[in-house]
Design a protein around this nucleic acid. Structure first.
Length: 652
RNA sequence: GCUGACGUAGCUCAAUUGGCAGAGCACCUGAUUUGUAAUCAGGCGGUUGCCAGUUCGAUUCUGGCCGUCAGCUCCA
């Protein structure tokens, strides 16, 4: 710790360029107050040299000085972390036996972990929330104290989890505690000035969570909540959760009759006739995109463990593989493949390759099996059996930049077709890795060059790469702004060695290729889940299981309706005729519920004029009479289907 | 896998303080012939997830199993 009494005076540079000179150890609150009393009222925290700290942490360094108010994004983290302390304050009052764990702010709000004999119930949650309101009303200041290790140990004698954390702190670290009223916590801060700053919050749910995320340690009870500075922001957040719930692909999947799951095959999907249409439409799209520059192959699903020993999966990934009993040996010598990579290598290896063939891109839609933990399974997003739009590129090292550029463009334009936007993440060498530093230097710089050539912004994820090479990950944002990690481009220098892959170079000698692993959709199952939620079940025409539904007004016009249906069908449109003796209103309502893009109503007028009256999805009761000649409607739908248009345009 | 909650008709959900399990929708039949978001009537439909135990009696209570859901990554 710096001995502040003897250090030189600090110089603080404010955003307007003006400077203040203060003694080391001065509280930021004093500096803020000197700028303006009202600013002090609005201040949540300060930023010194880019590092956030609260108003009651002594200043120790010179540099830039900025006051953070509710308008600054980082202030929200401070508020939420303080909310976690307020939650703990409330819990301790009502359940004095609760031992405290960690209570950080997270993307969506905050949580606090407690060790208790009896798990919390929803009633407890309501009680904690109202107790929190009392703590807020009592307006306790968050008091910071810097203490010695021995003092800290004394303060947390009853909290073994805190003591454990304390024991891990380095010798030179400042140990601080924060107190709000009756509650004291070992905490680095920063915090808002007092508990009354927390106005708009809600406890959302509880769940078990392992201490330090380690399944070997004890299970704690975690309480999740969220907090905002403004009421409308909290309301908007809760509304977004509600909106996400309405879009839940598991609910829509049943409603729209797309797929089902069965307890006899947990984690595997039964695609209905309608769901299969969506699946195939997606598959056709990917195939079409990959027709020119890729080579589609199909490889076995079942392999002898010898392959997995070479690939290293037998040692590292066996838990996640479905092993198959070989009756002849009585051993589980075979396994369903959990990934396509090794099978692609085997095919590559089976013949000699010239440098002229490279880059060589193998793509596969084979079925994969991964034995995920039962508790990890969830709808279509986490399954045990799935297909990937998997690609392995074999290339020369000097082709990396061009190839990555090619794949980046390919992936981004793919997402664009669905109206999805992507954010890029560049992940570099992890601590545990294979290959020389020199190799990593080359790999990272090639990837980075290619990435920067796109001119797109990206986030650097240092140390997040695969153990065999750096990668670019694609975080896709759906229509309600939720991120999903989908595509990936991974450089691999390791497997060419393991599998002794070669190509014949210009010099007529054998060279080692590099491999790029590429996925665009991740798994097709999960991608469809995302699409269902992204479109809220209202697929564009090209993906819709049923594109047009024909509704004759009375059975007098069934003949014409059949003619209309046939003409659409012959044009390649997915069309159904609903000539049931239900009222038109009823049939329209049902078609709308199934989110059919177009319903065409035909009666006397249409039969006489050779037209259809087009009901467009989403127009609701505002539906106008969109009368179109049949031929024109058919060609418009065909065009919309072929061009994969996102909006509905085939109407008058 | 672990913690917690849940599992009743195809779906959404009632009910049973341990005593004949019910509604709406869907489905089937009939009537109705409808001009754009639910026409009327009747009917079919259940080993209350599975297996044990307690009990005169279990869908209800107890235990085990299976499945589903929330979470187990955010770090004083």
């Amino acid at each position: 710790m710096i001995d502040s009494t003897q250090a030189a005076a600090l110089t603080l540079t404010l955003p307007d360029g003006s400077q203040r000179t203060v003694a080391p150890g001065t509280m930021p609150s004093e500096v803020v107050k000197s700028i303006g009393e009202r600013l002090l009222m609005a201040a949540v925290a300060v930023e010194v040299n880019g590092a956030i700290q609260d108003l009651v942490t002594p200043l120790r360094t010179s540099g830039t000085f900025r006051v953070l108010t509710e308008r600054d994004a980082t202030s929200l983290d401070v508020l939420r972390h303080s909310a976690a302390h307020i939650l703990a304050t409330a819990v301790r009052r009502l359940r004095p036996d609760a031992k405290i764990g960690f209570g950080p702010s997270i993307d969506e709000g905050f949580y606090y972990d407690f060790e208790v004999a009896e798990p919390f119930t929803p009633d407890d949650l309501a009680a904690f929330e109202s107790e929190m309101r009392k703590v807020v009303a009592e307006k306790y200041p968050f008091v910071r104290e810097e203490v010695s290790r021995a003092q800290a140990q004394l303060r947390f004698t009853d909290d073994p989890l805190k003591l454990e954390r304390l024991s891990e702190l380095g010798e030179d670290e400042i140990i601080s505690t924060y107190t709000d009223g009756p509650f004291i916590d070992l905490c680095r801060g920063p915090h808002v000035p007092d508990t009354s700053r927390l106005k708009h919050f809600k406890l959302t749910h509880t769940a078990g969570a392992y201490w330090r995320g380690d399944s070997k340690r004890q299970m704690l009870q975690r309480i999740y909540g969220t907090a905002f500075f403004k009421k409308d922001e909290l309301d908007a957040h809760l509304l977004r959760i509600e909106e996400a719930r309405k879009r839940d692909h598991r609910v829509l999947g049943r409603q729209l009759d797309l797929f089902m799951m069965h307890q006899f095959s947990p984690g595997a999907v039964f695609w209905t006739e309608r769901g299969t249409v969506v699946y195939n439409a997606l598959n056709d799209f990917i195939r079409e995109r990959q027709r020119d520059d890729f080579h589609e192959i199909k490889t076995p699903l079942l392999y002898n463990k010898a392959l997995w020993e070479i690939s290293g999966h037998w040692g590292k990934y066996k838990e996640n593989m479905f092993l198959v009993l070989d009756n002849e040996t009585g051993e589980h010598d075979f396994s369903l493949k959990p990934m396509n990579c090794p099978s692609h290598y085997l095919l590559y290896q089976s013949k000699k390759h010239s440098y002229r063939e490279l880059p060589l891109r193998y793509v596969t839609f084979d079925v994969l099996h991964r034995n995920e933990l039962t508790g990890a399974l969830s709808g279509l997003t986490r399954v045990r059996q799935f297909q990937q739009d998997d690609c392995h590129v074999f290339l020369r090292e000097d082709q990396i930049t061009d190839e990555v550029h090619f794949l980046l463009k390919f992936i981004l334009s793919y997402y664009e077709t669905f109206g999805l936007t992507a954010k890029l993440k560049f992940a570099t060498r992890p601590e545990v890795r294979i290959g020389s530093d020199e190799m990593w230097d080359r790999a990272e710089s090639s990837l980075k060059t290619a990435l920067e050539a796109t001119g797109m912004e990206y986030e650097l994820k240092e140390g997040d790469g695969a153990f065999y090479g750096p990668k670019i990950d694609f975080d896709v944002l759906d229509s309600i702004g939720r991120p999903w990690q989908l595509g990936t481009i991974q450089l691999d220098y390791s497997n060419p060695e393991r599998f002794d892959l070669t190509y014949v170079g210009e010099d007529n000698s054998a060279h080692r290729p590099v491999i790029i692993h590429r996925a665009v959709s991740g798994s097709l199952e999960r991608f469809i889940a995302i699409l269902i939620e992204h479109f809220a079940g209202a697929f564009p025409v090209w993906l819709a299981p049923e594109q047009v539904r024909v509704l004759p007004i009375t059975d007098e016009y069934n003949g014409y309706a059949e003619q209309v249906t046939k003409q659409l069908h012959d044009a390649g449109i997915r069309v159904h005729l609903d000539a049931r003796s239900e009222t038109l209103k009823y049939r329209v309502a049902e078609g709308a519920r199934m989110k059919v893009p177009y319903m065409v109503v035909v009666g006397k007028r249409e039969a006489e004029q050779g037209t259809v009256s087009v009901n467009v999805r989403g127009a609701g009761k505002e539906q106008k009479a969109n009368s179109l000649p049949l031929d024109e409607f058919v060609s418009r739908v065909v065009k919309e289907d072929k061009s994969r248009t996102l909006t509905l345009e085939a109407h008058g």
